[in-house]
């Protein structure tokens, strides 16, 4: 198949005049590969995606994925193929599992706890403020000091 493509390029009348040809034989498939590859991890590299890496294994895996795309496999089938061989480590988007629940829920849990904590803290503050009675003189002095601190030119 590839030699045919090379041959086509060699015959000037077949190649579009002076227009560079895409590197990939099938740009649509290549776009799908790219979309998949940015979510997959190159195993031998230092934290690089399969799309970015030039490592030989990454090239092999891209070839493998390209072939699966050509066979019209779904994204899920392709990802399952890789996970069954390399484990969840290849996925940059960790799958939702019991062990990753905290990972996915954590940020929103944190936000919820933070928001509740803030409301709670403000309420309690407000209550404390009214509970503690300062003498008028004391209060004036403190507010004056504080506002001096805040307003000092």
């Amino acid at each position: 198949m590839r030699w045919l493509w090379v041959l086509l390029l060699l015959i000037p009348s077949f190649a579009t005049a002076y227009e560079a040809s895409p590197l990939a034989a099938n740009p649509q498939a290549e776009a799908r590969l790219k979309a998949l590859a940015v979510e997959l991890r190159c195993l031998v590299c230092q934290n690089q995606t399969l799309a970015d890496s030039n490592a030989p294994l990454a090239e092999d895996l891209r070839r493998e994925v390209r072939e699966m795309i050509a066979k019209d496999l779904t994204d899920k089938e392709i990802i399952d193929f890789l996970v069954s061989r390399y484990g969840d480590f290849v996925l940059y988007r960790p799958p939702w599992k019991l062990t990753t629940t905290l990972l996915w829920v954590g940020p929103f849990l944190l936000l919820g706890v933070g928001a509740i904590g803030l409301v709670f803290a403000l309420r309690r503050r407000q209550k404390k403020m009214t509970d503690v009675t300062l003498s008028e003189a004391e209060h004036n002095r403190v507010t004056q000091l504080l506002s001096e601190g805040a307003r000092r030119p």
Partner: peptide, 30 residues
């Protein structure tokens, strides 16, 4: 909360590995 999620995502693979619950990657999609 944003800071916490960056911290969580960065260290989570380490947490799982330390607990021997498998190796995962947390990357840009997360």
């Amino acid at each position: 909360a944003a800071l916490g999620s960056v911290l969580l995502g960065t260290l989570y693979p380490l947490f799982l590995d330390a607990l021997d619950l498998g190796k995962i990657s947390v990357g840009p999609p997360y």
